[in-house]
Design a binder for these strands. Structure first.
Lengths: 331, 331
DNA sequence: TCCTGGAATTGAAACGTTTCAATCCCGGCG
DNA sequence: CGCCGGGATTGAAACGTTTCAATTCCAGGA
């Protein structure tokens, strides 16, 4: 494999000059640059990442911890997120390192190994819990990171999030405007921060419309299709009347629609349904799902931009991204 | 950040000894080892990945190229795959580097950059095409890789694949046994190798049952829910009679079920439906989908095992994994 | 008591960059 | 014609490991 010395020799210059060309640091005569570039192309030279990392003291790599096992993320939403992150990384010449972790205890050890070993320059945290042990750990260790999501009390750290509260409020307003008065709400456990915000949106939305908050209409269920199904079925079985239903994630909405179908109540006709996320499948359900889109590209870009700032040692401001109501036939 | 010298000093030994302890190479007195380990723990030392990479001439990192843009993989199946890969990597102390790539031309450049820069030791290829330009490129450059899937003619390279032919044949046999004679089949474009194999399974399955192959029952459509929907709808609109339908992916099956519902034909009752993949959602459709499960953990393990062998310079044999028919209510 | 040999330990040289400081080159000015 | 100054180039020292070869240590045999 060619090294910088090989390139230097071939171009008839010193390695230092090659380095200057490579990094656009230092003054190089245009003609020399030309020769160096030609040598690079001819040799098919690519700088050794490890050597660079060693010398520059950074790896230009973003760390992403993916929980597996029990906590595994099976929402297709995350595949979209990974895509968006990958794209945003590519735009900034960064690499994306995915590390998986079976149990929460190992999370922190993994973080240390990757960071102290300089394998990554900082982290992206996803699937945030309201009280997330990773946050204090990272803060204490002075490891740069950006969270996708917030924690209880909006601690002092860089984050990017989608405004779930505003989104759900908009959904409620939309339904109210269409004459709905009894709107059920499917919420994931409040240990997820996003669940908390979205529920808040539901509350405020009702309040703004002057509607009472009825506890029986609110169901807590895991953010999966199955749990959404069960929760909606429970509502139906218990005979709680409602003409519309908002689910905090599309997956839950899909489950709910299945329950409605089974009960002979046509979604979009007998019961309005609204989801959240706009996973690709949402456009293809029966009927197509009205939902709040999380603008993935924007999210990816914001996360990486913020991450870069954090790694540079700045304290970038949080970013709150507005979801977009996508009207389809389910509501 | 602590270095190996710090550890050495603290333990009262030379860096070489610390290295021996770290890697279990070279003889070390148990008592010395103890002292070194204590120093490591006290300092919270983690070896610098870049330095290691430089010296050992390998990075212990698996490269995975994720196409985005047009070719983006939005099948939730891939999220499962990423999880499985992450787990398998963790088992072998490997890291997983995800690189994204918008256009096919850039694929090859990306591969070169990552490999020649020793950022990764080799690649995992997914989303294989029947004639995949990446394969000859990697072979010519002598870059280790393992493909998840085959190409036309089963070229001479390491691969792991799920036996789509056997799977679909089993599905056909299963349906025939239940009295079905007119079985529609939804196939992705044959430029995907897996589509080719699965279609072959359909052909052979029919032949084994002594049923004629009717071209009108075979529909080619992109492996998305939307395309599955359209294809099934076309069948229905054209009035082609069929009592069962096999889709080459779950996503297509979901689309088909939607078309059936819309046409008033209840899946699992009026028409048997079988998918392929067993994405998490398959258990939650209406009705739950009978499908051929791709055993993800097995796949991840096989891929990484094979990858390791390939990186060591061996020429590991291909692995063909059997899918498992999961009976649910759709067929 | 000295020597031997194997086990344990160490010193130092690499791995391939980047970057500081030093040197070289050359046109223009005095 | 010599010198100056600034741009261009280079040499060499890191960065933090691993590993070869050399050295030290020590128990046991002669």
């Amino acid at each position: 494999m060619a090294t910088i010395r090989d390139v230097a020799q071939r171009a008839g210059v010193s390695p230092a000059t090659v380095s200057y060309v490579l990094n656009n640091s230092g003054p190089v005569r245009p003609e020399t640059r030309e020769r160096v570039l030609r040598a690079i192309a001819e040799l098919g030279y690519h700088p050794h990442a490890g050597a660079r990392q060693l010398k520059r003291r950074r790896s230009d790599t973003v760390g992403l911890i993916l929980p597996t096992g029990e906590r595994r993320l099976s929402d297709p939403f995350f595949l979209e997120l990974i895509h968006a992150l990958g794209d945003a990384c590519a735009d900034h010449q960064l690499d994306l390192l995915i590390a998986t972790c079976r149990d929460p205890a190992a999370d922190l050890r993994l973080i240390d190994r990757l960071y102290k070993g300089r394998r990554v320059d900082g982290f992206l945290l996803i699937d945030l819990q309201r009280r997330d042990p990773r946050i204090p750990h990272l803060q204490a260790a002075g490891i740069p990171f950006v969270a996708f999501g917030r924690i209880e009390g909006n601690g002092e750290f860089p984050w990017v999030d989608v405004d779930g509260e505003a989104g759900i409020r908009e959904a409620v307003a939309y339904l109210v405007e269409r004459g709905h008065r009894r709107i059920a709400y499917l919420s994931p456990p409040l240990s997820f921060t996003f669940a908390h915000h979205r529920l808040e949106g539901y509350r405020k939305g009702l309040a703004e419309a002057g509607l009472p908050l009825e506890e029986a209409l609110i169901r807590i269920a895991r953010p999966t299709m199955e749990a959404g199904y069960e929760a909606a079925r429970a509502l139906l079985v218990e005979g709680i009347p409602f003409t519309a239903l908002i689910a905090a994630t599309d997956l839950m909405a899909l489950g709910a629609m299945r329950a409605l179908h089974e009960a002979g109540r046509i979604p979009g006709q007998d019961v309005a349904v609204i989801g959240f996320d706009d996973i690709p499948m949402a456009a293809q359900t029966h009927p197509p799902l009205t939902t709040l889109r999380q603008p993935m590209d924007q999210i990816g870009q914001a996360l990486i931009r913020t991450w870069l700032a954090a790694v540079r040692g700045e304290t970038p401001p949080p970013t709150l991204i507005q979801p977009v109501l996508i009207r389809r036939e389910s509501a």
